[in-house]
Simulated assay, not measured.
Amino acid sequence: MTASIFDLAYEVPIIKPKVYAGSYTRIPFDSTDPRRNEPLVRLETVGVAYEAHHARTDGGNWPYFGAVPGARKDVWLRKTVAGMLADVNDLLRPYRVELIVWDGYRTLACQQGMWDFFYREAARALPDGTPATWRAQALKHAVDPSDFREDDPETWPTHATGAAVDLALRDLQSGDYCELGGRFEDINDVAATDYFERKLARGEIADDDPRLRYRRLLHWAMLSAGFENDPFTFWHYDWGSQLYVKMTHALRADPVKAAWYGYIAPP
């Protein structure tokens, strides 16, 4: 049985940014939860497609246009999280699309490489700025891992937990990316998950705009499987991490108390 994206009776909720603003690193982490020790698995073991964005060497990975130091060509996630993505694909199959993952578990070396890139870009764009100015600009795009400590949850980048994933949709037959509007890692107004819902509410787009409909489909499928979205970016979802818990506090009547996935060493 097949379905159309226009058959889905679902809307991405419009959320005021102040509702979910602030850092996630102060969210409690439950070190006694047995799930904290769940291993990482490669995405191909659950049949989910991926493209390791930060490891590309063909110049097609904006804004780096080359491999980020420390990036891996394989993509890993916690075992349960990877299985949940397979469940998402089951939900998407009638719509003739599937997930394409851009990033999952991220090594600290890759996080450092991303930070260094955006810090250099800030210094280049603002030659009269100060280190504080450049740092503030870089923080709009990447987490600074320089204060990382393995035993301190307040220093853990969410991708270093193996419980955060960046993804989009692609056509099952052609493999072409579906048009969700915006560009991966391009942090601006268009990146906000509810961007096209807001445009629809203002009468600036029609209800059949594919960008609106594909964002709805992705959001519906991911939340149906248990994930939470970071509303700043339509491509980012978590389950079990501090960021996941933060979003449940912002958006749910029954929030989760503490994260169970913390930092995990590279496989």
Rank of each mutant, 00 (worst) to 15 (best):
V19H: 11
V19Y: 06
Y20D: 09
Y20T: 03
A21T: 10
S23Q: 05
S23R: 15
S23C: 08
Y24P: 04
T25M: 10
R26S: 15
I27S: 02
I27M: 14
D30V: 00
D30I: 05
S31R: 14
S31V: 12
T32Q: 06
T32Y: 02
D33V: 00
P34F: 01
P34V: 12
R35W: 00
R36P: 13
R36W: 02
E38V: 06
P39D: 13
P39S: 09
P39C: 13
V41W: 10
R42D: 12
R42E: 13
L43P: 01
L43W: 09
E44T: 11
E44V: 09
T45S: 15
G47D: 05
G47E: 11
Y50C: 08
E51V: 15
A52V: 10
H53G: 02
H54R: 10
H54Y: 15
A55T: 01
R56P: 00
G59I: 07
W62D: 13
W62T: 15
P63G: 11
P63T: 12
P63C: 09
Y64A: 03
F65H: 13
G66M: 04
G66Y: 00
G66H: 02
A67Y: 00
A67V: 04
V68C: 11
V68E: 12
V68I: 15
P69S: 09
P69A: 08
G70P: 01
A71H: 03
A71Y: 04
D74Y: 10
D74E: 10
V75F: 09
W76L: 04
W76R: 12
W76Q: 04
L77H: 00
L77R: 10
R78P: 04
R78W: 05
T80Y: 04
V81I: 08
A82R: 04
G83V: 07
M84I: 03
L85R: 07
A86Y: 04
A86D: 00
V88T: 10
N89I: 08
D90W: 02
D90M: 11
L91M: 13
L91R: 05
L92C: 06
R93Y: 11
R93A: 14
R93E: 13
R93S: 14
P94T: 03
R96G: 14
L99D: 01
L99P: 01
I100M: 13
D103P: 06
G104D: 05
Y105S: 12
R106Q: 13
L108M: 11
L108D: 11
L108T: 02
C110I: 01
D116R: 02
D116G: 01
D116C: 05
F118Y: 12
R120N: 06
R124T: 08
R124G: 00
P127W: 01
D128E: 14
G129A: 02
